[in-house]
């Protein structure tokens, strides 16, 4: 009697068993197919109907290379000082805009946190934040322009208003991630709602929230280019003029390079500061008088510990939903 590889069963037994248990067929993944086909159809329909001439598409590689050549062979740095001045103006718009957004979004973030306020308040606060999030900067800009004039201040206001939504929403997520214990402790000591927020919530969330401001500043530097659409100053306006209107390609090349370099430089500095803010001071542990008590996290192999409820801002990312 030959033994099969399926343990101690005889051939007959194995056969019997394989009749009982049918191997499943690969299931049909309807969701995946729906998505794929929808995307393909969407792509072909939109490509076929969109107003793009084939000749334009054909000329694209050659034209792009040609104009890049005009920009950088040879580079022309005579206009660099004006580009740097314009970039500083962009940084100004982005920073002041971020500060406006930070100040306005700060209270809204608390009102939008489900662990602090009741459903109606949270719902109302979230709708307000959603509104600011779904309107683009350019819309706020052209609605403000007739009132406050064609100036960098107007751009800062527009950037600030549109920062409220994201800052408030991400701030609310940070607040919802706190430890509830300290809040209960403040309540048990007889603290009112404002006092609980001030002493049990704010100290827990302030590093993450300040890191969010810096993160938004990095984004607003890029968004400040929107000023170029209406000619309200900054590097965006300079580039739109140099490329789109007077066609000084060599000068535009320099401006573009300066914009990219300064943007990346500010990103790097801001990113470091954000990580430092969230990590907190490196532990200067004082073992002091109480021998036998080992502070948590100072044992062998314990690295710098994160205390924050969400560490994601430190890495410069957030999950948008």
């Amino acid at each position: 009697m030959a033994r099969t590889s399926t343990g101690g069963m005889t051939d007959a037994q194995a056969q019997q068993r394989s009749e009982d248990i049918v191997r499943p067929e690969k299931p049909f993944n309807r969701f995946r197919w729906t998505v794929t086909i929808t995307l393909l159809v969407l792509f072909f329909v939109t490509s076929a109907t969109v107003d793009i001439e084939l000749s334009q598409l054909a000329a694209l590689p050659e034209r792009t290379l040609f104009y890049l050549g005009l920009m950088y062979t040879p580079p022309d740095v005579t206009e660099a000082p004006s580009a740097i001045t314009a970039m500083i103006e962009s940084l100004g718009m982005a920073w002041i805009g971020t500060m406006i957004g930070a100040v306005v979004s700060f209270p809204l973030a608390f009102l939008a946190a489900t662990n602090l306020f009741g459903k109606p308040v949270v719902f109302a606060a979230r709708q307000i934040l959603n509104f600011f999030r779904s309107v683009p900067e350019i819309v706020f800009l052209i609605l403000l322009l007739p009132v406050t004039g064609l100036s960098p201040v107007t751009v800062a206001l527009a950037l600030g208003i549109s920062s409220i939504g994201t800052l408030g929403k991400l701030g609310a997520e940070v607040i919802e991630g706190i430890e509830g214990g300290p809040v209960e402790a403040a309540a048990a000591a007889g603290g009112g709602r404002l006092q609980r927020i001030r002493w049990a919530v704010i100290p827990q969330v302030i590093p993450e929230i300040v890191a969010l401001w810096l993160y938004r500043f990095e984004i607003n530097i890029r968004n400040s280019a929107v000023a170029g659409a209406v000619g309200a100053g900054g590097i965006g306006t300079l580039l739109v003029r140099q490329i789109g209107q007077v066609r000084e390609w060599a000068a535009a090349g320099t401006s573009l390079a300066i914009m990219v370099i300064i943007t990346l430089l500010v990103d790097t500095i801001s990113g470091r500061v954000r990580r430092r803010i969230i990590r907190g001071p490196t532990r200067a542990v004082d073992l002091g008088a109480n021998a036998g008590e080992q502070p948590e996290g100072t044992g062998p192999g314990a690295g710098p510990k994160r205390e924050g409820p969400t560490g994601s801002v430190g890495g410069g990312s957030f999950v948008p939903v």
Partner: peptide, 19 residues
């Protein structure tokens, strides 16, 4: 590091207006 508006203005200058 390059904002969408700047990409747009470059390509409009290079290949003309349109979608």
């Amino acid at each position: 590091a390059i904002p969408d508006l700047i990409y747009a203005v470059f390509f409009v200058a290079a290949i003309g207006r349109g979608a």
